[in-house]
Design a protein around this nucleic acid. Sequence first.
RNA 1: GCCGUUGUAGCUCAGUGGUAGAGCACUUCCUUGGUAAGGAAGAGGUCAUGGGUUCAAUCCCCAUCAACGGCUCCA
Length: 605
Amino acid sequence: MKGGAASGASLLLAVIQGRPWNEAKRKRMPTETTAHPPLNAIRHTAAHLLAHAVKDLYPDAKLTIGPATEQGFYYDFDRKEPFTPDDLTRLEERMKELIAADLPMTGREISRPDAITRFTAEDEPYKVELIHGIPQDEPLSLYTIGSFTDLCRGGHVHSSAEVGAVKLLSVAGAYWRGDEHNPMLQRIYGTAFPTQGELDAYLQFLEEAQRRDHRKLGRELGLFSIEEDAGGGLIFWHPKGTAVRQIVEQFIREGLVERGYLPVITPHVVHEHLYEISGHLENFAQNMFGPLEVEGQRFRLKPMNCPGHILIYRSEARSYRDLPLRYSEFGTVYRFERSGTLHGLTRVRGFTQDDAHLFCAPEQLQGEFEQTVEEALRLLHAFNFTDFQFFLSTREQRGGTDEIAEAAIRNALDRFGMPYELDEGGGAFYGPKLDINLSDAIGRKWQLGTVQVDFVLPERFGLKYRGADGEDHRPVMIHRALAGSMERFFGVLIEHFAGAFPAWLAPVQVAIAPISEHQLEYARQTARALRARNFRVEVDESNEKLGYKIRHWKLQKVPYILVVGKQEAADGTVAVNERGIEERRAPVAVETFAEELAQRVAERR
RNA sequence: GCCGUUGUAGCUCAGUGGUAGAGCACUUCCUUGGUAAGGAAGAGGUCAUGGGUUCAAUCCCCAUCAACGGCUCCA
């Protein structure tokens, strides 16, 4: 791709023009409505009503905090007995009574000593702790609805009736103040909307999201599995999942070749010593699998590809004429993740990054960085992703080089006019980074691509190149993975398309359904002809009626089903049943259909 | 890792203190069919694993493992 702001901007424009699911997601996940009062006030008040109900039914529960969230609200309680699903039903009933009673919500200021006295007397230790954490100059306020009064900074509707419709969804553990050294509280999640209709629409959205869940589709469509006998977080790519992955990889490879990347391959297991040099052992050990002892030597599974690529760089004397040097690898890495965090394809213990490391002179940094951002946009565009966000993560203790790196990132983003959010202190141990996040079916955000500037590892490994001035200089590194990991990218991709991959990506592009076994040979022959053109084709050889076969392949979300009966076999044609198109088409010659499909594949749709 | 829930056939799920069921999928036979489920028969389970209570455990208790919903952590 030829670089430049103009192409970047037009690309971006194209990216912004969304696809159905993105729009549907926005519509059906009404995080904002035009309704008055605003949703977050409704939900904040709903959280108070939940606390009211809990205090009514389970007076021993201690109050903590209960905010509105993007999709609803929660309230955390400290209580010995766990809340059961039955408890949730009872609490929801009680909340509905409170809503029906149309109780006014009133707020008033309270002095600090009075507040402490009050909550101490009520035996609400968490509230007292909260008060101590609030800055002295900030006024404190109490909000009362019905018989329930809570410490709260406000943002409520005027009465419980305005809450409209509520639903309690789940109960989960949550640490007090999010710190795992603190006691575990019980968090009750719920959501609220001005009207029952909007609530129903949201619940319907959640159901639709469940149908899109990549773990469910992965099994139904035969894409991948996770095997108990092998361990959690380790992915088995089945033939159909592998087919999709290879197409994605092929797409990425094409971009790499165009941009002058050099493919490399590095070992999965190396001496632990390498990670002493790189600093991984010092900074990343809690995410690494433990050492393997062989003949008294300690080896480690690789958690990142960078040290390997650095060794390749360092294996020869380098000149400024060699730079930038761009090494790419679909590199499989293994990271230890705590068991409770594993999640389908999106949080795993072994994954393959579309990784690359760019070694460049400092003055080349800006240009190289911009290219990677542009490339990231190309990737997102090709897969119809529009629902992404950029995050800039900075290092906690910055050196001077971090300032340079940060500036490079900001300049690149500004150049493409990309908005981004800032995550102070969230950077990698070797430098600041730019992350690309995408949402899954229910709006959970996952980090996919990442571009990181690194002055540290070149230093640690003593990397250098001979400059035009005859002196040695230190190169700068950019680490970049644009899809991030093939696993996570695939997970988000499955949900994005609800398993109905466009023809160019579909693991089975064409299913051929003979009407009776008399046409089986013709079906096989047609399949051979299409496979000869590199299409992915299956013949339905089952002893079933046509309706059954159609249903089967529709459920498999195959883009094309070709029906062949007596007439088609005689004419050398196929009757095309295209996914998403209801009306029947007149049969066409096999070659005509092949051209149509070839066109779609070429256009990646 | 922590809190909670769950674990019965390949999948989705019923069920009982006296060693188990359905639908789909699978196999075979009949059927040879025109766009979302034709009929019949059959096979398939150490009821997650290991202990304990009991005359007897898939069911009750404990532990472990795994999955799920979160929290924490985080590429």
